[in-house]
Design a protein around this nucleic acid. Structure first.
Lengths: 193, 193
DNA sequence: CGAGGCCTTGACCGCGGTCAATGCCCGTGG
DNA sequence: CCACGGGCATTGACCGCGGTCAAGGCCTCG
């Protein structure tokens, strides 16, 4: 995939949230850069403040962090998702979270300080990203609810329902921490048939 | 507290996220109405689409829903918080959640369809509410993390740390469901000293 | 004064966690 | 090309946290 094609894919995807003005779109495009990262490499290390927003074009990323030395997967981010560590991006504080590639991945990166500046001149861009983040907010609220009151098995079945491909593409240890259980537990659940 | 004073408090609070233009502020004010609701009454019943955003001025509200017939508290909303069922507000779907008063409460209500229309003319208002929702998003992400990997006792201690007054003001059964445990469990934890 | 809601406490038990051993796959170097 | 080593997944043994069920005390309100 060419860089140009990747950026077009990203812009097209972003436009699906809200179509910005022609000029805003062109300004936005100027801040898009493409990148490629190989499996198991870190796109962003733990401990930096989040100032870049990524659009996954092709491949698989995950957001993770260390809790008491254990590696916890916060989310899987497949193609056509906006990837950002919002708790850092919106608070300006350093993030304890990192972004890692689980497959060779093509992405588009947008630096947020100039992006946020663009909002002043182009309300349609602010609208667009407001909607992007609202959608993320909704997903997080729903995930909170599903995590809080489901058994390990229910959470597994729900993942199987909603993102079955993840189970093929990500190591099970990451799936386990994503579900909030141990890999041992996950293994037992999967053995039930 | 007069209606006028309540609205001023709400506007002042909202301005702390981002100061809108003078004119935007005046337009916003036109859409603010005040209300009063007594303890244990429902501000919004379960099952309606969320089209109103509330600012709690004085008192205590909670967002809750029914899961398998059990009453689950999603959040406590004390004075000076923006209260909305975002998963409905941003998706347009009916909410399975309700809003209930845990104390006599004074609030300001803002109808969202006209509010969102105002955004077209007043980008500074869109900016303001973008920041309001970003802050909520960050809180939710952090809560997700804390719920996922803490024991019942840790979650209780964290609440004790962060919002000790809730334990005085809300029935323990609601505190328990908020923490994702049973009231029996909560009772035992509290008995530990 | 009685009824019902809320909180506590006891008895019991099952889900899911830890620890440890084993098997499997795969990349690397002799 | 095979031997080795390390990471990942599975499995068994064990156990503790927190769930359910049920009984009892206390407070509020009709």
């Amino acid at each position: 995939m060419t860089n140009e094609a990747a950026i077009q894919k990203a812009l097209q995807y972003l436009s699906s949230f809200h179509r910005p003005s022609q000029e805003a779109m062109e300004r936005l495009q100027e801040y898009c850069t493409t990148g490629f990262i190989t499996k198991n490499k870190n796109l962003q290390p733990v401990g930096h403040t989040c100032r870049t927003l990524y659009v996954n074009i092709e491949g698989l990323l995950r957001i993770y962090y260390l809790k008491d030395g254990k590696d916890i997967t916060e989310s899987f981010e497949p193609a056509l998702s906006v990837v950002a560590r919002v708790e850092s991006l919106f608070s300006g504080r350093a993030s304890r979270k990192g972004i890692q590639a689980l497959e060779d991945t093509v992405y588009v990166a947008i630096s947020t300080p100039p992006l946020f500046k663009l909002f002043d001149k182009h309300p349609s861009l602010e609208r667009l990203f407001r909607k992007v983040f609202e959608a993320g907010y909704v997903r997080t609220v729903n995930r909170l609810e599903s995590l809080q009151f489901h058994s390990a098995e229910e959470k597994y079945r729900q993942l199987l329902e909603e993102q079955p491909d993840i189970l093929q593409r990500a190591p099970l240890k990451h799936v386990a921490s994503y579900l909030g259980i141990t890999q041992v537990s996950l293994s037992r659940i999967r053995a039930l048939r």
